[in-house]
Each structure stands twice: as C-alpha cells, then as structure tokens.
Amino acid sequence: MKVEQISIFIENKSGRLAEVTRILGDAGVNIRALSLADTSDFGILRLIVDQTDKAKDVIKAEGFTVSKTEVVAVEVPDRPKGLSGILDVLDAGKVNVEYMYAFVERCGENAVIIFRFDNTEEAIKVLLDNGINVLKGERVCQM
C-alpha cells in the first residue's frame, strides 16, 4: 500500500535541479510526480519515479545525498469536497499530515494525492477502514 519516494538534498543554487533531471533522463528514468520544498539555502526535491532503486543509485553515484521515504498515494474523487472528505477522515483518526502534493492522473477522472504521515501504517488503516482508495505502489510508479 505504500509508495516509495526518493528525496534529494539540493543546494539552493542555479543548475542543481536541471542536473538531477538530466541524470535521471540519461538513465532512462521517468518522473511520475514531484514536489520541491524550498528554504533560503537548500531545498528538498521529492520524486516518485518508475524505477526507484535505479534512480536512487544513479543520483547517489553523482554525489548527491538521497533518501528513500514511504508515502501514501490516495485517489481523490474529482468533485467538490473530494479532498475534504479524506482529510476529515484523517483528522477523526488523529493522523497528522507532514506534507502532501497532488498530481492529475493522465487518463483517469480522478486526482492522486501523495501524503506523508507521521504514522504511515496507522494512516493506511484509517483510510482503508473508511473505504478510501489507497493506490498500490507499483500502480503509481507505472502510471
């Protein structure tokens, strides 16, 4: 039920982002979703890719600091209150969201939201108990 995400430490200077995408492109890795968090001197690039381990290896080989994190992908109905229903469920289950980002599925009608929780196992349980569609890792990577 969990999705593997890689996170890369990059300094806040020009060309670093392009460098990461070039390395991934050269290795034939496809990016499925991404988010960039910024601070004044560094950023964290979070990626979901089609070949997680390969991506991690090639980026690490180029000297970047990389880590693998488990996140959860949730399918969100593309209609008003689609997301708020999910957040209400999480709130009621006392699960905290550390961060989240969204992407729109290419062909489907639904949006997909990536969540990072303080307690991943508990979050998945709460979501499933409430009948919410949690996507399998392989599916997200191959979208």
């Binding site: 995400q5 430490f9 968090a37 560094f42 964290i44 979070r46 600091t65 880590s67 990072r116």
Partner: peptide
C-alpha cells in the same frame, strides 16, 4: 556536508 545519516526528507528536521 550533508551525508545520508543526517539527511531527512523533512525540512524541519534539517533546519
């Protein structure tokens, strides 16, 4: 230099 042991994907941890 940030190495893997100290890296976290959460900004607040690094800060």
């Amino acid at each position: 230099e940030v190495n893997e042991k100290m890296f976290s994907d959460e900004i607040k941890v690094l800060q």
